Simulated assay, not measured.
Amino acid sequence: VIGLELGSVWRRLGSEVVLLEAQTEFLSMADADLAGQALKIFTRQGLDIRLGCRVTGIKAARRQVQITYQNAEDAAEELKVDRLVVAVGRRPNTDGLAAPGARLQLDEKGYVDIDEHCRTNLPNVYAIGDVVRGPMLAHKGSEEGVAVAERIAGQPGHIDYDLIPSVLYTHPEMAWVGRTEAAIQAAGVECRVGTFPFAASGRALAVGESEGVVKIVADAKTDRILGA
């Protein structure tokens, strides 16, 4: 996601951009229909997106970076670029977070281990945000902080992680919340899907931003919105 956001900016500024993605699916965490449309839009903008690639070597010179990688067909390829950005995810910065004798429990990935109420293994110690499991998003950490404050005050703090939105800061932007249509169907829930293209919106046409679509997935029996 971060690589796509930065690549989108540099492409709009006139740079040639190549994205090497290890996964074979584009934006696998998002709805498949929307991810497919986004791939077409970014490709039309000039982004060279190569899926299923595994980088095997990097050699940096004074004015150039040479990259070797295995493509989706497992064939070796070479790419020479002016600049290289490595955006393969983030990890929690928990080294030295607690005093040596505190014995704060971390999981195998370095996250602070918490229960469903954000409590750690230490009495009266809670953890929220980027150092605990879940997406590393500011609004997710804020919601956890509010819930923890409510619990400390004796109130029933609650977080519904299905309601935490994700945003891709490209152009056009892409956002989603709740579960995808595929995840809902995999759970055995009968659903209905509604879509509306921006090309049919007068306002979108007036401001020259007609690419994209709104998609809503709802429970077929109750009309409760399950994802968007």
Rank of each mutant, 00 (worst) to 15 (best):
L34W: 05
L34M: 08
L34I: 15
A35D: 00
A35Y: 05
A35M: 07
A35W: 03
G36F: 06
G36L: 10
G36P: 02
Q37G: 10
Q37P: 11
Q37E: 15
Q37M: 15
A38Y: 08
A38C: 10
A38M: 11
A38V: 02
L39P: 06
L39R: 14
K40T: 15
I41G: 00
I41C: 00
I41H: 01
I41Y: 02
I41Q: 00
I41W: 02
I41P: 01
F42I: 04
F42C: 00
F42Y: 06
F42D: 02
T43N: 06
R44G: 04
R44Y: 07
R44I: 04
R44P: 01
Q45K: 06
G46F: 02
G46E: 00
G46P: 04
G46A: 06
L47D: 03
L47E: 05
D48A: 11
D48H: 08
D48S: 10
I49F: 10
I49Q: 07
I49L: 10
R50M: 08
R50G: 07
R50S: 07
L51Q: 13
L51A: 13
L51S: 08
L51T: 06
G52P: 00
G52H: 02
G52K: 03
C53D: 00
R54I: 02
V55T: 10
V55M: 07
V55I: 09
V55C: 09
V55Y: 01
T56H: 01
T56I: 04
T56C: 01
T56A: 03
T56P: 04
G57N: 08
G57Y: 06
G57D: 02
G57C: 00
I58W: 04
I58Q: 07
K59F: 05
K59W: 09
K59H: 10
K59M: 11
K59I: 12
A60G: 09
A60D: 12
A60R: 12
A60N: 09
A61K: 12
R62E: 11
R63N: 14
R63Y: 13
R63A: 13
Q64Y: 13
Q64S: 14
Q64L: 15
V65E: 14
V65R: 15
V65Q: 15
V65W: 10
V65M: 11
V65H: 12
Q66R: 14
Q66W: 13
Q66M: 14
Q66N: 15
I67Y: 07
I67H: 09
I67W: 08
I67E: 04
T68N: 13
T68A: 12
T68R: 12
Y69R: 12
Y69H: 12
Y69L: 10
Y69F: 09
Y69I: 07
